[in-house]
């Protein structure tokens, strides 16, 4: 692969937010003492009157965000995925989602690519937690370009949104100048007929590599990037199930309740086919370099390749 630019989606988020703040003065940004990490500090520096760092109190941050939203503000509230969706879960449910308020929960440091900080900070259940909340929308962009569009989409969407972002710098693969982010629509990155790989977030680029490796073995893999996990693109997934007969899901999240769960739920009623879910199988993560963790959980190109090949060959 030629040398590609690498940018973490959290960095793209911080920049996009600061840009969006210039256009929309109803945007308010909040953070819980992690503004440097979540990159909301960029907005905070530019618009100090519309930025509130509440300190280490994620629950109160979500509640204040809800109150601000009742007055017409569009609030982007950020922390690490663990604390935003875990610690503040019930406040998101009862104070944000139930009254259907315009709060965008934008959480960085999702998944095992957090790396060295270890299991306590590697949130692998946030998609599951947010998916079960009525009205909640979930977007997980895969690169810089997609993140910038996702931030705009989150702003435009009327109601709560969960935006899942990562710590690790990742390749910017959306180089097409006509890239279009369509809310709720999956993107077919590569056509194929033997199997469909459905990925979301950082593992998308590894899945692209895996597809090349599979092709070298004569396996034709379709690749779908799902940026909107809820509502998920059922039509595209059912079509893929029908046409390729097998689906592999890839996510840095628990295979319970995340992308894998969502894909299974989407296809089961209309076109059930075998699904191999790649991700964390009911285990916590651990400390280590992000890429080594990806390897351990089979989320790197080699891991996706090997598991898909085995699955396709019926082993």
């Amino acid at each position: 692969m030629p040398e590609v630019k690498k940018i973490a989606t959290r960095v793209s988020y911080g920049k996009a937010l600061a840009e969006l703040g210039e256009i929309h003065d109803d945007i308010v940004v909040m953070d819980a003492d992690l503004a440097a990490s979540t990159q909301t500090a960029i907005f905070g520096k530019k618009f100090p009157d519309r930025f509130f760092d509440v300190g280490i109190q994620e629950g109160n941050m979500m509640g204040i965000a809800a109150g601000l939203a009742t007055t017409g503000k569009k609030v982007f509230a950020s922390s690490f995925a663990m604390f935003a969706t875990g610690r503040a879960y019930e406040i998101i449910r009862n104070s944000i989602a139930y009254p259907r308020l315009n709060v965008k929960v934008c959480a960085s440091h999702a998944g095992v690519s957090v790396g060295e900080d270890g299991a306590s900070h590697q949130c692998i259940e946030d998609i599951a937690l947010m998916r079960v909340i009525p009205y909640m929308v979930i977007i997980q962009p895969a690169d810089d370009i997609e993140t910038k569009e996702a931030v705009k989409a989150a702003y435009e969407h009327n109601g709560p949104v969960y935006l899942r972002l990562a710590r690790l710098a990742s390749p910017v693969f959306n180089t097409d100048p006509d890239y279009k982010f369509e809310f709720g629509k999956g993107i077919t990155l590569r056509d194929g007929s033997d199997v469909t790989i459905v990925a979301s977030g950082l593992p998308v680029t590894a899945a692209m590599e895996a597809c090349e490796m599979l092709a070298a073995d004569g396996i034709s893999a379709r690749l779908i990037n799902i940026h909107t996990i809820k509502p998920i693109d059922e039509e595209l997934l059912i079509k893929a199930a029908r046409e390729t007969g097998k689906i592999v899901t890839v996510e840095e999240h628990s295979v319970i309740g995340g992308l894998g769960g969502a894909v299974c739920e989407a296809i089961t009623e209309k076109c059930p086919v075998p699904v191999r879910r790649i991700g964390l199988h009911d285990v916590f993560g651990e400390s280590g370099p992000a890429l080594e963790l990806y390897k351990k959980y089979g989320l790197d190109a080699q891991g996706i390749y090997a598991q898909t090949k085995e699955f396709v060959e019926g082993k």
């Binding site: 509130f52 629950g59 109160n60 979500m62 509640g63 204040i64 965000a65 809800a66 109150g67 601000l68 939203a69 009742t70 007055t71 017409g72 503000k73 019930e90 406040i91 009862n94 104070s95 139930y98 009254p99």
Partner: peptide
């Protein structure tokens, strides 16, 4: 529930309403 005329915020899970009120005052 906020959908009821005159009700300014959904509440009932204790401790949450006061944060929302703080957000309203901040706004």
């Amino acid at each position: 529930h906020i959908a009821i005329p005159g009700v300014d915020m959904s509440s009932g899970s204790l401790g949450q309403g006061v944060s929302a009120a703080t957000g309203m005052a901040l706004s």
